[in-house]
């Protein structure tokens, strides 16, 4: 009596993707960016809402004062970028899970990517091209150092 001959398993056709490490990097990115975001967001919340006069201190002058410091510009830009990429990647995974038809998938992916690009570009513009002392503005609304700049 002889055992039936074993046939090699068929080659996989589950996903014909060539970017074989993409999902691993996506997984790693989510963990690392999540860690950094926790630090950034809690610093942000503490500085804006807890220290000083709390929420009532936030006005144009407060924001302008923060962004006069390059460190805050970098921190806020990093927070914007990581939050959008982290959230966007999470949404991508959700769409992969729940949007089954091709039309729905590409529509949702399109909206997702477009919104990510728009928010990142607009946010970066605000952070990096911010003018703390616009000409012709009410002096009482501006940070104190503008008096030297505008006069």
């Amino acid at each position: 009596m002889s055992a039936p001959e074993l046939i090699d398993p068929k080659p996989r056709i589950r996903s014909g993707r060539t970017r074989r490490k993409a999902e691993r990097w996506s997984w790693m990115f989510m963990r690392l960016s999540g860690l950094v975001l926790v630090l950034l967001i809690f610093t942000h919340l503490t500085v804006n809402l807890v220290l000083g006069e709390g929420v009532s201190q936030i006005d144009f002058a407060f924001v302008a004062g923060k962004w006069a410091d390059w460190w805050w510009q970098v921190a806020d830009f990093l927070m914007l970028l990581l939050a959008m990429l982290h959230g966007g990647n999470g949404m991508r995974l959700l769409i992969n899970d729940y949007a089954h038809s091709k039309a729905w998938r590409s529509a949702l992916m399109g909206v997702l990517h477009l919104s990510m690009v728009v928010v990142i570009v607009l946010g970066s513009l605000v952070i990096w091209t911010f003018d703390p002392c616009p000409v012709d503005a009410d002096m009482s609304l501006l940070p104190s150092f503008c008096e030297d700049v505008l006069q």
């Binding site: 589950r14 074989r20 490490k21 999902e23």
Partner: peptide, 12 residues
């Protein structure tokens, strides 16, 4: 491991 590294593998 290479099979499980796929899009439908462990990362899901």
């Amino acid at each position: 491991l290479e099979i499980l590294n796929d899009k439908a593998g462990v990362w899901k």
